[in-house]
Design a protein around this nucleic acid. Structure first.
Lengths: 258, 258
DNA sequence: CCGAATCATGCATGAACGTGCACAACGTCG
DNA sequence: CGACGTTGTGCACGTTCATGCATGATTCGG
């Protein structure tokens, strides 16, 4: 049996029963409990379930849409590490726009609870990921929902975005390069990002290593406008050095997620 | 039984009964009172309940209805059956507004793929639940996101809703009664529902058996405005008969989900 | 003010856990 | 074809966690 196949089976059990037991799964799938624990850990870090002592519970929150969901699952621990590092720079009382994207989704799920933040987003998944316990007021920008980017796009969304003046924009980047700047795959998405970049007081970008030195078709904003780039140590190389020379503050995430 | 699972069960008892007794819980869950006391202490420190001598009380500010994501898991198979029955009445090419609510969430997830529908909603969870495979264009109404109802409320949302003229409104009902009509727990939610009910060409309500004959604090619309009520056979009784006499078409869902 | 019930705390125990390591299966590239 | 990196798995190790019990302290009701 394939690993992913087994994890899919665990996921379907979760939705059916609402919970799974590690020991039970181990004997049912004829693997060791270690393997099951690894599965559950992975799934939990991808937001598929809640890990608890003895097994796992179905996530009490709404389902994350498949395209975004798949992206969220890729390198989830690394994205969580980025999120943890970025969360430190969210100051109390600030209005923060969180762009769509898998790393930003991880950030939304790990927003600090010891500070009060006004969260604005055009991504329903981000809005739902904000832990209700934190009591951060969440404003969602409406419009035509685009499943590919996982955000609301179009004229309506753009119109609403134009009225905003966020203190901080947590920008999602499909590509990030010292020369090409921040770039996106979708033209409409790029248009909204451009507006946001202009009207925000500060910009922070979360980028996994593989995004550095790459460019997508649509330009959003030059790197000189980005105040802070959160990335990982694995990104070190020529593209990384070039970014550092643009004046942006580069933050390296601790892989352990601290 | 998992520790967290037990604590969740205690929490749901708290919202149901308003109080729990330590000794009673201990014998019901077959653990020692020490364990229960530890649970209650932990929950109290998390703000989930108020610890008192002999047990615990529900927090005075405890939400009357549990948040949407919890409601969605209650009686899920029955809600899926309602959804399957309701899906038959969505006609090709129609613009359908899907209100927030757990049964409506199930409907969104089971939208027919053989017809083209324009979906509009103010619930991010509903927008995300629409299967991307179906290619239904989804418009999401933005605004302040309210975790309690699971929808975007407030002036912004109301303003956008006012511009809509849906062919069909799939209305969520917190209570449904022949005399009291459709009612809601939240005043702002009720305001938006009222607007929608006025501007929609037709109204359909999905209601599980326990909602029939009950009323929530805020009035939305009288039953005479509701064209079709989808409910279950288990609802049959005086309240059910009274609804039938108002002229609305009553549809009974097949428990097998067909 | 007294007895009984309830409680917090410390401790012991076993289950569940994370981590590091070794090994096997697999695909890739020279 | 063989060397190599990757990935999934199981095992051993020490650690953490949940639980029940014992012990005093606290609270409640009369």
């Amino acid at each position: 049996m394939l690993t992913r196949e087994r994890q899919a089976a665990i996921a379907s059990r979760l939705t059916r029963d609402g919970k799974v037991l590690a020991g039970e799964l181990a004997s049912d799938f004829a693997v060791s409990e270690d393997t099951i624990r690894r599965d559950l850990r992975e799934m939990a870090s991808a937001g598929l379930c809640e890990r608890v002592y003895g097994g796992a519970l179905a996530r009490p929150s709404a389902p994350v849409p498949p395209p975004l969901h798949e992206r969220a699952q890729i390198a989830a621990p690394r994205k969580n590490a980025l999120a943890a590092a970025a969360a430190r720079y969210l100051v109390d009382g600030a209005t923060v726009f969180i762009d769509a994207g898998s790393a930003n989704l991880a950030l939304a799920a790990r927003l600090p609870v010891d500070r009060r933040l006004r969260i604005v987003t055009h991504s329903p998944a981000v809005a739902l990921a904000v832990p209700p316990r934190a009591q951060h007021p969440v404003t969602l920008i409406g419009g035509r929902y685009d499943a590919e980017t996982g955000a609301c796009l179009g004229a309506e969304a753009l119109g609403e975005v134009e009225r905003l003046r966020p203190d901080l924009l947590v920008l999602g980047a499909c590509g990030l390069d010292a020369v090409a700047g921040v770039t996106a795959f979708d033209p409409e998405d790029a248009a909204i990002k451009r507006h946001l970049a202009r009207s925000s007081a500060a910009i922070m970008v979360l980028a996994t290593a593989e995004k550095l030195g790459t460019a997508a078709p649509f330009f959003v904003v030059g790197v000189e406008a980005v105040g802070r780039i959160v990335t990982e140590a694995a990104a070190k190389g020529p593209a990384f050095d070039a970014l550092g020379e643009t004046g942006a503050e580069i933050v390296l995430a601790d892989p352990s997620g601290r």
